[in-house]
Design a protein around this nucleic acid. Sequence first.
RNA 1: GUGGGUGUAGCUCAGUUGGUUAGAGCGUCGGACUGUGGCUCCGAAGGUCGCGGGUUCGAGUCCCGUUACCCACCCCA
Length: 424
Amino acid sequence: MNVRAPKGTADMLPPVARAWEYMTRTAQELFARYGYEPVYTPLFEHTDVFVRSIGEATDIVSKEMYTFEDRGGRSITLRPEGTASVVRAAIEHNMVPTGSSAKIYYSGPMFRYERPQKGRMRQFWQIGLEALGMPEPSVDAEVIAVLMEFYERIGIPRENMRLLVNSMGDAFCRPPYRDKIADYIRDHADSLCEECVRRAASNPLRAFDCKNPGCREVMSTAPLLRDELCPECEEHYGAVKSYLDALGIAYEEDPSLVRGLDYYTRTVFEVQADAGLGSQNAIGGGGRYDRLMEEFGGPATPGLGFALGFERTLLALEAAGVEIPSHPIAEVYVARVDSSVALRAFEIAASLRSAGIASELDHQARSLKSQFKQADRLGARLTVIVGPEELTVGEATVRDMLTKSETRVAIDALPAHVMEMLGA
RNA sequence: GUGGGUGUAGCUCAGUUGGUUAGAGCGUCGGACUGUGGCUCCGAAGGUCGCGGGUUCGAGUCCCGUUACCCACCCCA
């Protein structure tokens, strides 16, 4: 029996799981304030959903998907990202009738078959949101604002992050530019790595991402999409930046920002953290996908969204020294002097819990001293001492763990009395 | 898929040029204080030294293989 979790997966033990819930809670409250509603889609889809949306030539589709055949002979894939499923669901349920819009968010695990490293897991968690049906540039700025506000709220200092933005053009200006880059790559084939030359055919823009010094050199003088945008895209991009300026959100333009999903049009953005992460330093990112729903066979509906990674965000939080808020495990500890009063102690703890007070007690007949140690460790503010002596007159002793003062209280009045002490 | 690093107690790690019974700190449990926590002191429990083979009188230590994890490349959250 192999008792290890599969490669690239991790059990989330209480400290991490608490952080997960904290991030989820923060996102839910924030997203609701911007009018987003939750959606849960399946963790797996027909393989086609991802191939057609993310793109055949992307790394995700060509080598990172968890794909298998189910017992009915269908090709099924564990979702590698969230947008494709959301868009599929939006079409299936006609969530965005012509002329209307929808704002939705999701969270949960995603799956990609890769070699794990710092900030990269085979099962990793994301929260994301999608704004469907709205082509206006103010929506781009609003979505970016939500993302930045999320990080601010959970406590990552702004100076630890960089917001990168770029425009990928649209169906009119990108194809000619793609051809231009493909030509450029072919013209310089002898000074580029073979990977980049191969990309000329499938995904030429990706050559901008290559870390090879020779390729960087060549690509640094390549024509930039920024200079080839059609007037409409140029105007849209300019407006997005104006709205960001109006919100006081600082950003850097990065003309080489080319994200690894084919469906993006116009605005793309990425947030990088400079502390706590290894080389996987993108903690969140997203972009606009105005053609995606149409390509899926749905109505022509523009869309835009982002996703942020739990694991990487937690690394950035730890680097910033952020304390994850938590509640004490027990407000009240019920200690018993000896086993003759075990039953009464059990009843008292139950009555406190019924009154809504988080209470803990020892089930293992440990010494009174170790029960106090336990009370201390759990962060209990009060300890109720149940002993034969007090019981003869129907009372118990309540000890304030901070002031060390003790009072005798009638057992019947205990829940009310304890609540009063905790409230004070 | 490629490369590098590391596997010794629940956790973090020592362990000399190979040498007898493998250690420390933290944590856990007990005691000092026979009905009272955080500090201190004392004690106890807890280990197939990742696994398999080889060299050797003798391997935690050296060699080979294997496996797991970590980090990096590629790409991304």
